[in-house]
Design a protein around this nucleic acid. Structure first.
Lengths: 154, 154
DNA sequence: ATGTTATTGATAATGGTTATCATTATATGA
DNA sequence: TCATATAATGATAACCATTATCAATAACAT
């Protein structure tokens, strides 16, 4: 229990201490679930369900609070896929921008696109509109390869 | 009353009839408000408040339903600025993609960016990821010129 | 070990949106 | 024009993700 990644836990502990927050078993358990489910874009409710198998006494409100906290300290980032709930993704070391996403309108799959394709565009926008970009949210909606092979959406 | 744009109203009437919907005073009033407030990204509640000066008996539920309907027939598009409510924008003739937006983290202003800058990126993404893009949602968060002049966020 | 203070869990409240349902209005065809 | 079928409306209850409240508990510094 709470033994997924000592390295990550130590890093979290460090980040929390700096800001005056405490490291609780609940917070460790939420982090572990996020580590175990990298790349899955879990919602708060989904995280709550998963974390309860390790930590059955945890309350839903604590999960909400923990996710807010982790977002505030920059450990995770929140994303909105317009499905009525917040979803979260671990922020990787050395990443200051989040990925962008390809969302399939047929099967709902979410694929991540590397950032570098967007870099040129951001520079152009900053110049043309004299706007200092700090972050972005980029979603492309369409049909993935698999779904285009099954039915004919092309 | 309900006399903003005969041309637009006729077009709406046409679009509604094709799908078997009826043209009601309430729907005309909502359309008029949207026409009068082009470029403002109004929320449902804001539209409700504005439309009541022309149409005081209209119910909030009707405004919600009308906006859903107008979105469904492609007359407006819904956007999510992560402020807890849906916002809407008229879809212009000959536009199949929505704009993208620059959202200022200081004053909250929303500026529209022309589509052409994104075109190259979309082509590259389609090729690289074999994904057929139908629509997108692109938001850049940062600081606008005015706010960067006032305080020093740069 | 102790005390300060953040955190927790349970639950009520919030707020945007949707569902329900009886009543009313629109479009259509006689 | 008028009657009729059916969609639309307004009022309001329900929904659901999220946030606020608050007394009890736990983490960390000393």
């Amino acid at each position: 229990m709470f033994n997924f990644s000592r390295e990550e836990t130590d890093k979290l502990k460090e980040q929390l201490k700096v800001k005056g927050y405490k490291l609780t078993p609940q917070r460790r358990a939420v982090l572990d679930i996020l580590l175990e489910n990298e790349g899955k874009h879990l919602s708060t409710e989904e995280i709550y369900d998963l974390v309860r198998s390790d930590c059955p006494e945890i309350g839903l409100a604590t999960v909400y609070r923990t996710l807010q906290l982790l977002e505030r300290i920059g450990a995770i980032c929140r994303m909105n896929f317009d499905d009525g709930c917040n979803r979260y993704e671990l922020v990787h070391k050395n990443e200051d921008h989040q990925h962008h996403h390809l969302i399939c309108k047929s099967c709902g799959s979410v694929e991540e696109v590397e950032y570098d394709l967007l870099e040129t565009l951001e520079k152009k926008v900053e110049e043309k509109y004299n706007f200092k970009i700090e972050n972005h949210s980029v979603k492309f909606f369409g049909y993935c390869e698999k779904c285009r092979n099954n039915v004919n959406n092309d």
